[in-house]
Nucleic acid binder design. Structure first.
Length: 334
DNA sequence: AACATCCGCAACCGCTGCATA
DNA sequence: TTATGCAGCGGTTGCGGATGT
């Protein structure tokens, strides 16, 4: 409370540590333990503040630190834990032996966060982003998810239920899109759904599905074979609590009332479910060149099929973008 | 080859929570 | 109960190397 920064005192050294300083610190701690961090620098003969010494030790010099790249399992564990705990880096680090909170935080900020964003997820909520353009990859992934499930007997019944839930979510996204303005490019007017320019919508769909003009401009399907490419990145849904934990009252990640000792949580943080999931299994054996699985003809159909059997559509307002997108996504291409 | 930009990481800063007097 | 000191945490910064132009 109102204390001056410790390093301001007496011109204590800041910045990168030299090998000599490292050696001095390690030597002292190995001999005496760190004891009081505030007292340590003087005792160890270092011209540093205690805080700096503590950080250097915990983040770099500690003998049990594991160095090198994060493996697939570690990455999945971080995703799982972050979905539950949020930015509680030290809590996450405590579940990853040899990794420091700083390292995990850096890895999150430089890799995982971007990855989730690219896949159409909000990195804070781990849920699909609410604007359609950024969530298109997610919708694509959902469709592929269903396709995948249809070709696996693996926990089929349970996953079908989850798939149905996911598809419902996709439909919700879709509706949300209809209720949001497109980014303005001069030809559209914000906040007015009736003022959407038809070509804008079509172009956005084209751009974001990565489809050539022919796919939308002609009725001939040319999306290639309908196989899910195993080399592509795993769908990250396995870490989503509502898809993985049989828990109806899941709340926000930061809600301290979550019972983190529940067996479901234990399974979650150990990545049991996700490690057994077919997409992780398929991706772990192959490098992941692309974040977004490709949309295939079959996955398009699957998404369409699932949506056509849902009751959600009946409640949707009957407006032209609805029909247009239904056509584009579910009928025209197939 | 030179310069600009991007990226990853180590370290710092400021805040919070806990222990203690 | 309040003030103080400390350790720990999370956000942010800045440096150096890698990559692109």
């Amino acid at each position: 409370m109102g204390r001056p920064p410790c390093c301001d005192e007496n011109g204590l050294k800041k910045g990168p540590w030299t090998p000599e300083e490292d050696q001095q610190l390690v030597k002292y701690i190995q001999k005496h333990g760190h004891g009081s961090w505030r007292a340590l620098p003087k005792l160890a003969g270092l011209n540093r503040c205690g805080k700096s010494c503590r950080l250097r030790w915990t983040n770099y010099l500690r003998p049990d630190i594991k160095r090198g790249k994060f493996c697939q399992e570690e990455e999945q564990t971080i995703l799982n834990l972050h979905a539950v705990l949020g930015n509680k880096w030290s809590a996450i680090a405590s579940r990853l032996p040899g990794r420091t909170d700083n390292e995990i935080k850096n890895f999150w900020n430089t890799h995982l966060k971007k990855k989730l964003i690219h896949m159409g997820f909000d990195p804070m909520t781990h849920r699909p982003r609410t604007d359609i353009l950024s969530s298109l990859p997610h919708l694509i992934a959902l469709a592929n998810l269903k396709e995948l499930i249809d070709h696996h007997s693996w926990e089929e019944q349970a996953l079908r239920l989850q798939s149905a839930e996911a598809v419902q979510m996709a439909r919700l996204q879709y509706l949300q899109y209809l209720l949001q303005p497109l980014p303005s490019n001069g030809s559209t007017t914000a906040n007015s759904i009736n003022s959407f320019n038809e070509m804008d919508v079509i172009n956005h769909i084209k751009d974001n599905l990565g489809l050539g003009a022919s796919h939308l401009d002609t009725p001939t399907p040319s999306l290639g074979t309908s196989t899910l490419q195993p080399g592509h990145d795993a769908i990250p849904f396995s870490h989503l609590p509502d898809l993985q934990i049989p828990c109806n009252d899941y709340q926000t990640p930061l809600n301290k009332e979550n019972n983190v000792q529940a067996p479901e949580f234990t399974a979650l943080i150990q990545g049991e479910s996700s490690l057994n999931s077919p997409w992780l299994a398929s991706s772990s054996s192959t490098p992941s060149p692309s974040v977004v699985p490709p949309m295939t003809e079959t996955s398009m159909n699957n998404l369409g099929d699932a949506c056509s059997t849902s009751s959600y559509g009946e409640a949707a307002p009957s407006i032209w973008p609805d029909l247009l997108l239904e056509d584009l996504l579910f009928h025209e291409i197939s």
